[in-house]
Design a protein around this nucleic acid. Sequence first.
DNA 1: CGACTTTGACCGGCGC
DNA 2: GCGCCGGTCAAAGTCG
Length: 325
Amino acid sequence: MEKDKDHFNYDPFCYNHHELNHTSFPFFRDHSHSTPTQNFQGFDPSLTSFTDCLHRSMDYNTLSRAFDLSCTSPEVISSIDDNPKKPCTGDSVRIISRNPGTPNSSVSSSSNEGAEAVTQEDSSAKSKKDKQPKGDDDADADEKSKTQNKPKKKEKKPREPRVAFMTKSEIDHLEDGYRWRKYGQKAVKNSPYPRSYYRCTSQKCIVKKRVERSFQDPSIVITTYEGQHNHHYPATLRGNAASMLSSPSIFSSSSLGSSLPHDLLAQLLPSYSQYDQNSMFHQNITHPQQHQHQHQQQQQQFPFHHDYGLLQDLLPHSLENKSHE
DNA sequence: CGACTTTGACCGGCGC
DNA sequence: GCGCCGGTCAAAGTCG
């Protein structure tokens, strides 16, 4: 009972998931560990959540159009607890309901925010092992010494910021432009679908991602990215996305406006460059059946779906300068 | 043969 | 203290 409830709340679709379709714009992000400098460059560093960024620094409609998203997308979760054990106990999982015609989103919080910083990190300490299998004895020693010095609230290593995407796709591991190596798979409690763990294959890149299928809606794939790539997308992308990205016309649609540089978007999610953006935007105005048909066609054409949220945490550091331009 | 996946074991945090 | 659970490791297997 209790655990089922918890799991339900952890699932991103605990909020009106029936409204989610492939034109909606759901995303959630664990921003509790991100420092201002880690945040999406170009955003106000004082912003406390990405949702704030959306509403204060960016034109939501523009952004949503850019991602082929309905402006009436009912909810946006700007922050979510990655710890399924405490999804609604201490962490803020803010659900921003955006109603058509209401410029200001209504923000609902599923919980208090007080314990966010603590609970967000409760699993971060585990990641200490996966960084450097060899030569991190000192780090381990430091960790242990830290824990001994701080018996209660030990200073845990901040976890990389996370951003998650809900994607309607039959493919579990969606192509996102980077190369990943699977290093684990675990059964998810109360879910028939396992969770897969991937690590970026690039050297010195610590970006990880988890891929799981929503048990609420098996057609939805939840991909959670952790960390920032410290490199550009590999040149050996499937579909030669990297070369396509070099084309300045890829994201030339005015839909993006000036709020989000095209190349920035492309680097946020290199796979986007493989899309015919016109077909992306057309989906917003087609009949639902037609829409679905187009969607299926696109899914056949591309091994991934376009229902990505913002990948600001995937920004290679080198992008930060670009975004200032 | 290298890159990648699979999968059982293991570890550490947390709740009871 | 114990058990559960998420996350990771690492050896073995698979694939091109």
